[in-house]
């Protein structure tokens, strides 16, 4: 497996300005470390040759970057208008009960973190949630239960 430095170097070649490479580089760092630690952000800055604060700006602007550790499965439920109208809030409540955690928390076994996010750009299939890199669409409570069950099995 290529190391982070190599991967970031390679990706950065696509951009004329190293600052444009911050986002993909942060994804790679997040993939490697699970979330963006101080050291991870400093490393990205060093590799791209830009000031650490510039990396920090981007990392704190977007919700896709985790500044805290997250569970194995990071559930991000969209609560923006379209999803809200089609019951996103009920789904969030359901998930809270089902997982026994509040929004922003992680289950004790470290499997699930629950977050709410703004529009995931898939309003046509609302309500929507994203778990790690996968979208789950046209959700109902039953579907959610099914998904959680599958993931639990996958994990054990």
């Amino acid at each position: 497996m290529k190391d982070l430095r190599e991967k970031i170097r390679e990706i950065s070649k696509r951009y004329p300005d190293m600052r444009s490479a911050i986002m993909p580089a942060l994804y790679l760092a997040q993939e490697k470390y699970g979330y963006l630690t101080r050291e991870a952000m400093e490393e990205v800055a060093e590799i791209l040759g830009i000031p650490p604060v510039a990396v920090y700006e981007v990392a704190t602007f977007y919700t896709m970057y985790n500044k805290e550790p997250v569970g194995k499965y990071h559930i991000q439920v969209c609560t923006n208008v379209s999803c809200m109208l089609l019951g996103a809030e009920t789904l969030v409540d359901h998930l809270r009960k089902r997982l026994g955690i509040d929004v922003g928390e992680t289950t004790k076994d470290g499997l699930f973190t629950l977050s709410t996010v703004e529009c995931l750009g898939s309003c046509g299939t609302a309500p929507v949630m994203q778990i790690n890199d996968t979208y789950y669409e046209d959700l109902t409570k039953e579907k959610v239960d099914e998904i959680i069950k599958t993931l639990k099995e996958e994990a054990s």
Partner: peptide, 9 residues
């Protein structure tokens, strides 16, 4: 020096 930034949103 690029020591400061706009953090957050």
């Amino acid at each position: 020096a690029s020591a400061l930034g706009s953090i957050g949103r």
